[in-house]
Nucleic acid binder design. Structure first.
Lengths: 120, 120
DNA sequence: AAAACCTTGACAAGATCGCGGTAAGGTTGG
DNA sequence: CCAACCTTACCGCGATCTTGTCAAGGTTTT
């Protein structure tokens, strides 16, 4: 057994998670540990530290694991984070080559057409 | 009644949401509309457009409203976004003034002490 | 004044989350 | 070889999320 690694339940004790939750955290891709030849999870000092700080983070900011999972998606999926960013950024999103006033008029007419169609 | 604004159920028709969900979206702080003197929600072209793009975003990326709500928190709460950023960034998080090697040793010893205490 | 809206608030069905437990089976150390 | 670990795969339960619907009351339109 490695000198510098804890098994899952030892890791649970020092970090304040349960072993059940350690596997859960891993299943969301937040912290993956290395494995022994037999497939046992082995937690080194870095993982332990990250587990502790993760715990603090969640507690201090009222954040859940699934929200951290989404944060992970945001930094892994480039196009997702761009789309989200763009949505928050744009009060009115429009093609760059259309002047704002024209675009607004176009949108108004479009929604009027759509509304007329929907109500007919 | 304003020329250029739709009531909640008209807005629902053109955007593909239900009026119930429009109120729900508002309750998460994602899209707030202005109100008529009597308190009726009035949706202008900008809100309608953002509602449509929000819908697309959610559908195309398999994202839920609560996750967009979290994204909103991330861009409103400075310290939260810094904490999340820092957690993902740091393989090992440590004070800036402590050299990496020493810190690592310190952490090891600390977790050994904690473990010993926990198991005694 | 009646019909057709709107408001907030509540209840409810179904899905997902957070977490524990259990079962069946492989590994490790004394 | 046996006790005490570990693995994955489930079942379940309380809490929360999503969404609809309904109730009680105000507004707008005709």
């Amino acid at each position: 057994m490695d000198v510098d690694a804890l098994t899952i339940q030892e890791a649970a004790q020092t970090t304040g998670w349960s072993s059940r939750m350690l596997r859960y955290v891993e299943s969301m891709g937040l912290i993956e540990s290395r494995r022994s030849p037999a497939g046992y999870r082995l937690y080194g000092p870095e993982e332990l530290q990250r587990l502790r700080t993760l715990r603090e983070l969640l507690a201090q900011h009222e954040v859940g694991l699934s929200e951290m999972g989404f944060a992970l998606r945001l930094r892994r999926e480039e196009d997702l984070s761009r789309a989200v960013e763009a949505w928050f950024e744009a009060e009115v999103s429009r093609p760059d080559d259309v002047p704002a006033a024209d675009w607004l008029r176009f949108e108004q007419e479009k929604h009027e057409r759509l509304l007329a169609a929907a109500l007919s």
